[in-house]
Design a protein around this nucleic acid. Structure first.
Lengths: 119, 119
DNA sequence: AATACATATGAACATATATTCATATGTACA
DNA sequence: TGTACATATGAATATATGTTCATATGTATT
């Protein structure tokens, strides 16, 4: 049984009952670091532009550069991140790579985020 | 009519038709910097823990410190960010400040994010 | 008024991040 | 095989970020 918070509790105010309850609930968060990575990945304007651009059609890297206004190198770097985070996938056609969203979870998050912004 | 991408288009491959279409769609993104700020705010494990803890009840700063495992100072700094981003609100009761989520958009984002993580 | 306490704030520091520039990889075509 | 081109990758750099420590603010209590 974990009581690693009690040292702290004794010192300050802390509502022990509440804290114990909430601590148990925290299990539902799963791995906060992993979830934070997802949100962090969406926490950059360039990547957001890339994701948004890919919501309706697949695009190659230089298309994405043109659309987002970022350099092709910058876009490529960001695409790597998006790949690592499993947000996008791609397929090759000749010299070019066509990127698209891996699933629609990201699109849903995007829409929900936009809703929040627009109050 | 904006054609600031044509310089770039001429140089490389770029599918001009697609790019023009998508560029128009990009208006739907609103202010990407603003939206990125929202996601960035949720892109930190400590802040995510705070938000998650506040999903079912209001808590004071030292409760949050105990629950998240972060120092009270660290929590306080993060709460300022969350306030600035309009994700949390608080009310005073004596010496203590009780924080809670400002609206449920954040909670929805959180749940959606968790869903993505769990495939 | 003085003290205690919960929280906020500022400065400092170490680490993470986004972009740029230079270079590498892989494909197509002569 | 050599050249051109789309994209990837690595190193470097400037900036942003999260935490800590020290200090300030505001409230309650004596």
């Amino acid at each position: 049984m974990s009581n690693d918070f009690e040292d702290r509790c004794d010192v300050h105010c802390v509502h022990q009952d509440k804290v114990i309850t909430v601590k148990k609930q925290m299990a539902g968060l799963g791995d906060p670091v992993r979830l934070a990575e997802l949100f962090k990945t969406m926490g950059d304007p360039t990547r957001l532009r890339i994701i948004f651009a890919l919501m309706n059609q697949e695009l190659c890297v230089c298309d994405l550069a043109a659309v987002t206004g970022a350099s092709e190198s910058a876009v490529s770097h960001q695409l790597r991140l998006l790949r690592q985070q499993q947000l996008v996938k791609y397929h090759r056609e000749g010299k070019m790579l066509y990127y698209s969203l891996l699933d629609n979870h990201v699109a849903v998050l995007m829409k929900q985020g936009l809703e929040h912004i627009n109050e």
